[in-house]
Computed example of a mutant assay.
Amino acid sequence: MTELFISAFVTLFVVIDPLGCAPIYASLTSGASGPQRRAMAIRAVGIATAILLIFALWGKQLLGVLGIALDSFRIAGGIMLFIIAMDMVFEKRTQRREDRAHKIAETPEVEDVSVFPMAMPMIAGPGSIATVMLLMSRADGIGERSVVMAAVLATLGLMLVSLLAAGPIMARLGARIEAVITRLLGVLLAALAAQFVIDGLNASF
Rank of each mutant, 00 (worst) to 15 (best):
L173R: 03
E178I: 04
V147D: 07
I51Q: 13
A41W: 01
M118K: 13
A119N: 09
F73I: 07
A69G: 12
T107P: 06
M118C: 10
R74F: 14
E106S: 02
A139K: 04
I51K: 11
P126I: 05
E98W: 00
P18W: 03
I142Q: 05
G64R: 09
P121C: 01
V132E: 08
G67C: 02
D199K: 06
G20I: 09
V132D: 04
E106K: 10
S137D: 13
M88I: 02
L66A: 15
P18K: 07
T182A: 12
L135Y: 08
I123E: 03
S33F: 09
F9L: 14
A193M: 02
M118L: 12
A56K: 01
L81W: 00
K60W: 12
G20T: 12
E106W: 05
T29Q: 04
V152R: 01
T49M: 05
I42D: 09
K103W: 11
Q61A: 14
E111Y: 09
G31F: 10
F205S: 00
A76N: 12
Q36T: 00
L189F: 15
P117A: 09
V187S: 09
V45S: 01
A151I: 07
V161L: 05
I83D: 08
G141P: 08
L53A: 00
R38I: 03
L57F: 13
K103F: 11
C21P: 02
R97G: 03
I198M: 14
Q95E: 08
P18D: 05
E91C: 04
A101V: 03
L184G: 06
V187Q: 10
I123S: 01
T182I: 10
M133V: 14
D87V: 12
V180S: 15
L135C: 04
R138K: 14
D87I: 14
D71H: 13
M86F: 13
I142G: 02
I47L: 07
S162Q: 09
P35R: 00
G127W: 01
G143T: 13
A203Q: 15
G167A: 15
F90Y: 15
S137W: 00
H102E: 01
D199Y: 06
V65N: 00
L63A: 05
K60G: 14
S146Q: 08
R96K: 11
F205V: 08
Q61M: 15
T29N: 09
T155L: 12
L184V: 13
S114Y: 11
P126H: 05
K60Y: 13
D71K: 08
